[in-house]
Amino acid sequence: MLFADSGLSDAQISALFAIWSLTAVVFEVPSGAIADRFSRRSSMVASGVLQACGYATWVVFPSFWGFAAGFVLWGLGGTLQSGAFEALLYDGLAANGDEDLYGRLNARVDTIELIAQVPVAVVATVLFSLGGYRLAGWISVAMCLASSVIALGFPEPERGSGDDGPGYLATLLTGLREAVPIRRAVLAVALVYSIDTMEEYFTLLVQDWHVPTAWVPLATIGVPLVGAAGASLAGRLPFRGWVLFASGLMLIAAAALAVPVAIVLLGLFYGLYRFVLVHVETELQHRIESDARATVTSVAAIGSEMVAFALYGLWVFGAAFGIGVAVLVVAVVVWRR
């Protein structure tokens, strides 16, 4: 929504997302080690602050380079949260011997996150009508800062990473070493999570399908709801490899139709995709055995960012159809894992 009236081309927007991914590639794993060595909760607090600064930069400097600087800040904030949240959640459960509940709780968190997008879409429509993307941007700044305040209240179990614990470099190396024996689980998360890049293009797709800009948030309101349904079912149903393959077919069909009704197929794509994402994320967390949980998770995240570069290129040259084909390829790899 922030880019709706920015005047940027699809190629420039793809370049901005590439800058965001490059930032993540550079800082993802080091930031995961920071969370493991010091505090996962503090990393999440800092994440909200940096992302707030990113939104503010977009509003104050609405040019390509202003957006680029904002994406760097947004990317830095994202790396501090990536891995830290999963580690905080899993270790909090493990401290009480409830780690087996992680999959169901992870599904619930994803479901709530997606459902929350519905009122946000309604509010975004109103804000865009009243004050354009600037008003929406400043509200986004406030929301990011509010998330930091909420993160301050998260409980964090004690770990052996205080003054007497291993140093930063030792923590980083521990995480990198552990990612090797569980590489299949790491690769599955990297490949599947990279598909989430597609979410950034939903508004552009719907605009291309002849939906007026002011109505884009409401037109796509059902997409996160279907995604929430898929995530919720993942907490109750076992993994099925063909689900991701079906997801890719839905996206290809939507791209072929390219009319407003294709939003239904877009929602089905997203729901099936979210079902698979919850499962591969949960499997990875169960396989990690060291205290460098955030670092290992960040290794998977950096893999997803590297794959995302290819998806950005596919968007420029093949849009949703090209990404749909890529989803089919990922589905084959994950299905055979």
Results as ranks from 00 to 15, higher is better:
11 A>C: 08
15 A>E: 14
20 W>A: 04
24 A>H: 09
30 P>Q: 11
31 S>T: 15
33 A>G: 09
44 M>N: 08
47 S>W: 14
48 G>L: 13
48 G>S: 08
63 S>D: 14
64 F>Y: 01
67 F>M: 01
68 A>Q: 03
74 W>L: 15
77 G>V: 05
80 L>D: 08
88 L>Q: 04
90 Y>D: 11
92 G>T: 13
92 G>M: 07
94 A>D: 15
96 N>W: 07
97 G>E: 06
99 E>D: 11
104 R>H: 15
108 R>C: 10
111 T>L: 02
111 T>M: 08
112 I>D: 00
115 I>S: 11
121 A>P: 05
123 V>Y: 05
124 A>F: 00
127 L>I: 13
127 L>W: 01
139 I>R: 03
143 M>H: 00
155 P>H: 01
157 P>A: 06
159 R>C: 04
160 G>Y: 04
164 D>S: 11
166 P>K: 01
167 G>E: 13
174 T>K: 05
183 R>M: 07
200 E>D: 13
217 P>S: 13
220 T>E: 09
220 T>V: 05
220 T>W: 06
222 G>Y: 01
225 L>Q: 11
231 A>D: 09
240 R>V: 14
240 R>G: 14
242 W>G: 14
246 A>Q: 03
246 A>L: 15
248 G>W: 04
253 A>D: 06
257 L>M: 14
265 L>P: 12
270 Y>C: 06
271 G>L: 01
273 Y>S: 03
286 H>G: 14
293 R>M: 02
295 T>F: 09
295 T>H: 08
303 G>I: 02
306 M>Y: 08
307 V>D: 11
311 L>H: 10
314 L>V: 14
315 W>P: 11
316 V>K: 10
322 G>E: 05
324 G>T: 13
326 A>E: 00
329 V>K: 01
329 V>W: 02
333 V>D: 10
334 V>L: 01
336 R>Y: 07
337 R>S: 15
